[in-house]
């Protein structure tokens, strides 16, 4: 039935506003902008390159520095903790015992430190141009990861040598299949903690002074220079509340077959890592909006 006088079509449809970008004072806390991040993936590759290439430019030994550093650290640890302090290492060759922990720790430490200084060391460039700030921590992590794989290759060489040509009892086992999960867990923690620290340091610099001390403390609370089973009972809680313990213990256990690794601990650690990562990401995204006003 027609109703006279009313013509619905005559009411103009409000033109739908179609903006490609809206900038407002407050952003949705849970808008993590992954799509935008993905559009800048080329920048990530370039930043990774920028991190890695200058490390060995204008040096005589060049890329050799990537493997010399963990070798020298291993030498020092072997001397101090092995030869002097005589920490028992389960009858393993020293280099094969220390190297995996050092290599994995290097990955965590360098990724964490790069990430935690994001806003402070990049303030000049952040003040001039916009790109998703998340690109920087992620490329710092990936550069550390590349480094890790090189150093991990070094470990494999030593490992295979001792496995094939010596009488040491090395027991590589199915836990090697967990390697990707171990690496991911370390990546999540380094990014998560790193982003939290970087978000906090945009306003308060206190944490930067604490960092060197804090990472060192964390290193000793993680089974890197000692196997978990020699820890006295009254200190065992330290290892068990440290979410990185099962990761490092698992890493060594999968190749050497020594240690107290339990898969469920790793799963818990992995889950917590994801949680830390997203918490860090939310804080980081909140901080990035006004970081240049306070840094």
């Amino acid at each position: 039935m027609e109703v006279p006088g009313i013509n619905f079509l005559a009411i103009p449809l409000k033109e739908k506003e179609n903006w490609s970008l809206e900038i407002r004072p407050k952003a949705n806390l849970f808008d993590l902008k992954f799509k935008e991040f993905w559009q800048y993936r080329d920048l990530i590759t370039l930043f990774v390159r920028r991190e890695l290439v200058p490390t060995y430019k204008q040096t005589i030994l060049g890329p050799l520095w990537f493997i010399l550093q963990p070798l020298l650290t291993t030498l020092i640890y072997s001397l101090i903790f092995g030869a002097i302090a005589r920490i028992p290492i389960g009858g393993m060759p020293q280099i094969v015992f220390y190297l995996p922990g050092i290599v994995l720790w290097n990955f965590f430490n360098s990724s964490f430190l790069k990430c935690s200084s994001t806003f402070i060391s990049n303030a000049p460039i952040f003040g001039k141009v916009y790109f998703p700030r998340l690109v920087l921590p992620v490329s710092g992590m990936l550069a550390s990861l590349v480094n890790f794989f090189i150093q991990f290759g070094l470990f494999l060489v030593f490992f295979l040598y001792y496995y094939l040509f010596s009488d040491y009892q090395l027991h590589p086992n199915w836990h090697i299949a967990l390697l990707p999960m171990l690496i991911l867990t370390v990546a999540f923690y380094s990014l998560g903690f790193g982003m939290m620290v970087s978000a906090f340091t945009t306003r308060y610099r206190d944490l930067t002074h604490f960092l060197a001390f804090g990472t060192q403390l964390l290193m000793y609370a993680t089974p890197i220079i000692y196997p978990m089973d020699i820890v006295p009972d009254k200190f065992k809680w330290i290892n068990s509340i440290n979410p990185l313990s099962p990761v490092f213990e698992g890493f060594r256990q999968s190749f050497l077959g020594i240690g107290q690794f339990q898969t469920q601990n790793l799963v818990i650690s992995f889950g917590l890592g994801i949680l830390i990562f997203f918490t860090g990401l939310i804080l980081f995204n909140k901080a990035e909006r006004t970081s240049i006003d306070t840094v």
């Binding site: 490609s20 900038i23 004072p25 001039k128 141009v129 006004t290 970081s291």
Partner: peptide, 25 residues
């Protein structure tokens, strides 16, 4: 700075249609 998104505004809004690039330095 607000238009190039290097910092966020305190009030109001900016709506943009198209991609912005800034040549601040």
């Amino acid at each position: 700075k607000l238009l190039s998104r290097t910092t966020a505004p305190s009030t109001g809004s900016i709506k943009v249609s198209g991609k912005i690039s800034s040549l601040l330095e």
